[in-house]
Structure formats: structure tokens, C-alpha cells
Design a protein around this nucleic acid. Structure first.
Lengths: 352, 352
DNA sequence: TTTAGCACTCACTAAGTTAGAATGCTAACA
DNA sequence: TGTTAGCATTCTAACTTAGTGAGTGCTAAA
């Protein structure tokens, strides 16, 4: 997407930086006097006014009304995030806090990521989000058919991230009980190390190879497994109530948009995946306002970083922070990056 | 709890009925003129004013301010619900709609109840809620240990409502693989038909009886299973966004209280269980406003009905509708009752 | 190029006004 | 004795008015 930013000289950059920074911390439109005071350049408000007018013309700032201070536009934030801000180093204490929290419970990827999401919310005072390792990267470790009644079978799949997926199926005819055992064995052999999203493809292949009575089993198995909906874009969102404290989310309409995101985070997940894919591999992405082009996210920003297993370079999911556009990016960017790297480390325990 | 209602004569009841009804439909404080028009008694507004003043004195009505119309108090609603309203019959079309929706997918209790919750939200234009059959009533049908690594074991339990519960455990020592098979067999024998909340009790008993090497297995099993937290008050809440349309939930504060309930519905579940237990078995209960004595629910009412398996009379869970106190109880009462009975029927498929 | 000065804009607040809905009370009526 | 018409009263909501202050844009001088 590589936005085409109108060129700025040094002074303009400094003033844009000041306006964004001040607006982020105060939530009030920023006037020329305030900028003059903050900046150590011995410039008068009048001069600053001229520059701000230029910045407005270029699309970086805007006014709430004709004679109010300036507020950054989405473009302004974007310029700030990609060119001006200096990512804040985390203190040792902060790093330790994150490590500590993440090394606590670790029975499955789901637990780790739920924990991560909460941790991010806590550390950022915004909402935390975490995507489970996606189906492409989770492979089958073990598959179990559990006959429940004559016509019912439960399928339990445990994946390489210790994720448990279960589905229940009711057949029209009776499923003979002596089928289960060999079928089970067969499935474990055929599907071991197969990624979740390739189940039906692999099964179809195997179906062709066989002719004997086992084919009958397989057909049943296929019917069972082809119905398993990939647990899909499973995203964990925690701490949304932190957002209520932000002054911009006091209006009913805005609050509802938070609800909208929680209710169906799928479009957001999709947008983030795309944005991450579009950028450099392994690099953090920041979606600002209507960047994502999704309903309800006009007033939000998301900072997200991919995580990957140790010694690998393919991202398998992401973690991030969701908050108002007016968000302390310097800090949050660091938190998200560091947390993502820790998550990768933790998850590596499950691989093999 | 059987509230002690101040006695009302026929006229007072009629007027209370009118006020509650009008307020429910208009959401505006009700004046004497409006009541006079609605009531076919040839009474003047002045007379009605006198009665309304009496009703206020008795605690059934209140005024927003000195010269506004009247609004029902919690007591007023309660009187209306328990004595005045005539539960509305559902039309054949409405019944069919409910039946149709519920006979669609039915692979597990969870699916049914999620569907039910959505259905209730849709039919009532409020939020729907549904409690899963609680652990006391769900018994173990099948239990499976799945070794994942040397030290990891997944436990999958399928209950009599086709609910799948899974947990993952990491041990400090290696779990010998040849233990799994006999242990599995043993657990299935020992725990078959045992309710989920009695797992650890039953295991403890069996632990005493044994001395041979199987005891070693059992000790491991015990360690595994005693850690399984009963999936507890699992309540499904759907359609909360319907509540946003209500005029009373336009203020930020009120919206947050909806959030509060969604975030942690446990106190509400508890209150409903108690209220259902307090009332007659198998009967619907209505919690109005601060009835439940729970934070965040001051502005809400809940209509809930227990469901039970066919030919049984012990409730095993409930379904209900959550909405503003100003809620069309006549209709919703009928919807909830009918839906609960259908849920019972559907769930009976899973029993045995 | 910078800045002081100044007129101007606009939101916000407080105070004041008005209209309307509903009330309580009194006195008359059936 | 219960009912009602009439009326003064109360209170909100909506609208006006005026004043304040933060901030701007423009101009002319440094």
C-alpha cells in the first residue's frame, strides 16, 4: 500500500510530531500556542500557525471547526507512525513482567494466547487481541473417533499446538462398532502431520488409492471429516472495557462500534492478515482508522505483530492491541513486538 | 420471596394495568389523560389522577419529576407480571417458527442451546440467554486419554448431552505409554454414568479399593481429573445488540452495564437459579430490576423458564430473555415458556 | 522569513424566556 | 360520598441571548 506522503521539511515534521504527540496525550485539539511552548525552537505562534495551515492543506491535520486547534488526520497519524515516532524501549521491569506472565500457565496454545491477550490489554490499557495459530500451521498430532450411540460419532482432533477440536456427527444409518478401531488407526496414519486445512484434500487422495472394504470406512471418515469446519479465524479479544475509559468512546454510537467489532472480529482479522502479508515478513503492522476499510473501525487503530516459531521465519499468527487512533504508539509498538516474540518462544514448546 | 403487595381494588388494578401497559409500549411517562382515553371506563382524568396518586403512595408508581406522568416502579412491574397480565397465546405461525428453528441442527446440547439463544433474541427483539444442562445432570458417556508427548495427556470427556469437554495436562515425569490403554478402560468403567461434578468423589472411592499396580494408574488419573474444572455456569447470551435499540439504553452508563453482564454473567446465572429454585418447580420466573440484587442489572428484567427432559420433572437448565424492565412480558413470557418446552424435547434425544 | 497585532470565528456556558404537559387542590355537582 | 370541572402551579424541554475565550487568518512591519 505504501502510502504516498506529501514531502515535509524538517520544521514541518517537527510540528506535525508535536501536534500528534500533544493530541495523543491530551485528547484536545492542539493550538499554535501550545505547540510553540512545547517546541524549543524559538518560534512564535504565528509562524507555527502558518506551518500548521500548510500541513492542513497537505492533508495531515484538520480542524474540528474553523477556529479550533488542529487534530491529526488518518494520514497525519500514518506519517507519524511510519516516519516520526521513536519506538520506546521497554524497561527491564516491563520485559520481566511480560515474561513472567507468559511463562505461567502453558498447557496449550489457546491458554497461552488468551493469557497474552489479557496481558496486552493490561499493559497497554487498551484492548488486547491474539490470533490462534492458523490452520495452515497447526498439524494433526492425533485423531480419535469416539462412538457415542449407534449413529453418533464424536471426532476429536488434537493439533500440534495442543489445541483440541471436537465435532459431533449424527448419521442416518448405524455405524458398525467394529469399524471404529481400524478406521481410527487408519486415520491417524493418513492424517498425522497433515495441516488442519488440508484434511479433506488428503482424505480424497487416499480414497482413490483404496479398493477393499476399508474404502467403506474411509467413505464414512470422509463424510465425517469433510464436515469439520476449520475452527477458522479464531481471535481472542480481551479488555474491551478499557476502551470505555477513553474520552472518544463516551458517545453511544462509538460504544456500539466496539460491540460490533467484538461480535464479529472476522473482517478485522482478515484485514490484519492482509496488511501483515502486504508488509515485510515478520514486521509489525499498524492499521489506522479507515485504513482497514471495515465498518466500525473508523475510530480505531490496531498495532499487530506476527509471531513465529523459533528458528523459523513464517508467521503463524499475530498478537496486537486495539484502541483509539489517539493511542500511544511509541509504547504500544514496543509492547506488542516484544510480546509477539515471547509468544513465539512459548509456542515452540509444542512444535514436535 | 413472595412479595407482600399492598391490596388493590378493581379500579386501581385496571389503572395500574393501563399505566404499565402504556409505558411499556411508549417508553414515555404516562399521564392521566392518556389513561382515561385508553380505559373504556367513562372516568375523567381528574378521577384517574386521584387513583394514580394513591398508587404512587402505595409504591406502585413514581414520577420522574413533580409534574410529569407516572412510571411503574419495580413493585408496579412485579404486581403487573404476577397478577395482572394475561399471557399472550402464541399464534400457530409463531409456534411453528420456533419448532422449525429448533429441529434444524441438533448435534449436541451446546448447538441446540446456542441456537435457542439466538432464536429467543430474534423472537423477542431482546437478548436471548440459555444455560447448558448443568454438571449435576450431565453424566459421563465416554472418557478418553490421549497421550500427546511423553509428558502430556489430553483428556476428552463426552457427556450425555453430547457435550465434549477437553483438558490438557503436562506432567513432571514421563507418563509410560503402556499405562494409557488399561487406564482408559478402567476410567470408562469407573466413571460411566457418573455426573460431571462427582468425578473426583468417585475416583477417590475407587482409589481406596485398589492395591495392585493399577493403583499407580489411578493416582495419575486422579491427578488428571481432579484438575478438570467443571465447565461451570456456562451461559450463552446472544443478541445483546438488540438492547441498543431500546431508548433506555442510549446513555453510555447504561450501555456499559450491558457490557458488564456479558463480561461476567455468573452472578446473573446464580440469581436465576436461586429464583427458579425458590419458586414452584418447573415454573417460569421473572426477575425485575434490582430484584436480582446484582450490579448492572438494575435496569433489566429477565424472564426465564426451566427445561427438563421428557417425562421427568427435575429442571436441568433454563432459557430466557434479558431486556429492559419495560418489556412486553405478555408476549415474552409465552415465547420463553414454549421455547423451554421445545428445548426439553430436543434434549431428550441425547439422554440414554 | 518571521512576527506582532488585530479582527474575526466559533463553541461553550449561563441566564432568561416560553410553551406544553401534567399535576394537586378546591369547589361544585350527581 | 364519589366524581369532575376548573385553575393555579410545577417542572421540563426547547429556544434565545449575550458574554467569554481559545484559536485562527491576514496584514504590515521588523
Amino acid at each position: 500500500m505504501a502510502t504516498n506522503f506529501p514531502k515535509l521539511n524538517e520544521r514541518e515534521e517537527e510540528i506535525l510530531e508535536a501536534v500528534v504527540h500533544l493530541y495523543i496525550t491530551t485528547a484536545e485539539p492542539v493550538g499554535s500556542r501550545t505547540v510553540a511552548k512545547r517546541l524549543n525552537l524559538h518560534l512564535s505562534p504565528a509562524t507555527i500557525r502558518n506551518v500548521m495551515a500548510d500541513l492542513e492543506e497537505m492533508g495531515y491535520l484538520t480542524q474540528v471547526h474553523t477556529s479550533s486547534g488542529r487534530v491529526p488526520t488518518d494520514l497525519g497519524y500514518k506519517y507519524y507512525v511510519s516516519k516520526l515516532m521513536k519506538v520506546q524501549e521497554l524497561t527491564i521491569a516491563e520485559r520481566q513482567k511480560i515474561e513472567q506472565e507468559l511463562t505461567k500457565k502453558l498447557d496449550s496454545a489457546e491458554q497461552i494466547l488468551k493469557h497474552t491477550s489479557q496481558l496486552l490489554a493490561l499493559a497497554s490499557h487498551q484492548a488486547g487481541l491474539a490470533e490462534l495459530p492458523n490452520e495452515k500451521n497447526a498439524v494433526i498430532r492425533r485423531i480419535d473417533l469416539i462412538p457415542l450411540g449407534e449413529k453418533q460419532v464424536a471426532v476429536v482432533i488434537v493439533d500440534s499446538f495442543a489445541g483440541v477440536h471436537s465435532s459431533l456427527f449424527t448419521f442416518e444409518e448405524t455405524v458398525p462398532s467394529q469399524i471404529i478401531e481400524p478406521l481410527n488407526k487408519f486415520l491417524n496414519e493418513a492424517l498425522f502431520d497433515v495441516s488442519l486445512d488440508r484434511i479433506s484434500v488428503v482424505l480424497k487422495e487416499n480414497l482413490r488409492k483404496l479398493f477393499d472394504e476399508r474404502r467403506k470406512f474411509l467413505e464414512i471418515a470422509f463424510r465425517i471429516l469433510s464436515k469439520i469446519e476449520p475452527s477458522s479465524s479464531h481471535m481472542i479479544l480481551e479488555g474491551a472495557n478499557n476502551l470505555f475509559d477513553q474520552p472518544e468512546f463516551q458517545e453511544p454510537g462509538k460504544i456500539k462500534s466496539i460491540f460490533g467489532i467484538i461480535e464479529d472480529p472476522t473482517p478485522l482479522v482478515k484485514a490484519l492478515r492482509e496488511s501483515l502479508a502486504r508488509g515485510e515478513k515478520q514486521r509489525q503492522t499498524v492499521l489506522i482508522g479507515s485504513d482497514a476499510n471495515i465498518k466500525n473501525t473508523e475510530e480505531f487503530s490496531v498495532v499487530a505483530s506476527p509471531y513465529m516459531l523459533e528458528n523459523q521465519d513464517t508467521p503463524i499468527g499475530f498478537v496486537g492491541v486495539l484502541g483509539p487512533k489517539r493511542m500511544p504508539y511509541e509504547k504500544i509498538s514496543a509492547i506488542v513486538d516484544y510480546t509477539a516474540s515471547m509468544v513465539g518462544k512459548m509456542l515452540s514448546r509444542f512444535w514436535r
